[in-house]
Simulated scan of single mutants.
Amino acid sequence: MDMTSREVRIPLDQAVEVVQDLNELVVSLDRLVSRLGTGTADESAIGTFVLDWNVLRKLARARQVIDVALDAELSEEENLEVDALCEQGRFFGAG
């Protein structure tokens, strides 16, 4: 499947929500990593952040928005190809 010139449409309100969540997470994680590097935070801060800021829920929502858009735009065969590519990712705790 040629993915270089394909476009997928995402409703603007959902795209904005995802961008807001991702921006919040990226900036916060950057700050957290900086604090870890300077010794002003310890490793437990990562777990606290993940739980208190609902990181899993926000990332799962972003994935869902993109998955729905892909399902709407791609054929079943193409979606299976995307699924196979996703299975090739690096997963914490695997192996």
Rank of each mutant, 00 (worst) to 15 (best):
S5D: 12
E7N: 13
E7P: 00
V8F: 14
V8Y: 06
P11C: 15
P11W: 12
L12I: 10
D13I: 08
Q14R: 13
Q14L: 12
A15W: 03
A15N: 02
A15L: 10
V16H: 06
V16T: 11
V18F: 07
V19H: 11
V19W: 06
V19M: 13
Q20E: 13
Q20H: 11
D21R: 03
N23T: 14
E24Q: 13
E24K: 10
L25E: 04
V26N: 09
V27H: 10
S28M: 10
S28G: 09
D30L: 07
L32G: 01
V33W: 02
V33Q: 05
V33A: 10
S34H: 09
L36K: 02
G37Y: 05
T40G: 04
T40N: 02
A41M: 03
A41Q: 02
S44E: 12
S44F: 03
A45R: 01
I46S: 01
I46D: 00
G47R: 05
G47Y: 03
G47P: 00
F49C: 01
F49Q: 00
F49W: 06
L51T: 09
D52T: 08
W53R: 06
W53I: 01
V55L: 04
L56Y: 12
R57F: 08
A60D: 09
V65Q: 02
I66C: 04
I66L: 12
D67T: 06
D67Y: 02
V68G: 00
V68F: 02
V68C: 02
A69V: 03
L70M: 09
L70A: 04
L70W: 02
E73A: 14
E73G: 08
E73W: 03
L74I: 06
S75H: 07
S75F: 08
E78A: 09
E78S: 09
L80H: 15
L80G: 14
E81L: 05
V82I: 13
D83T: 13
A84C: 07
L85G: 04
L85D: 03
L85C: 11
L85Q: 09
C86T: 12
E87G: 15
Q88F: 05
F91Y: 15
F91I: 14
F91M: 14
F91N: 11
F92L: 15
F92M: 14
F92E: 15
F92V: 15
F92N: 14
G93A: 10
A94K: 13
A94T: 12
A94V: 11
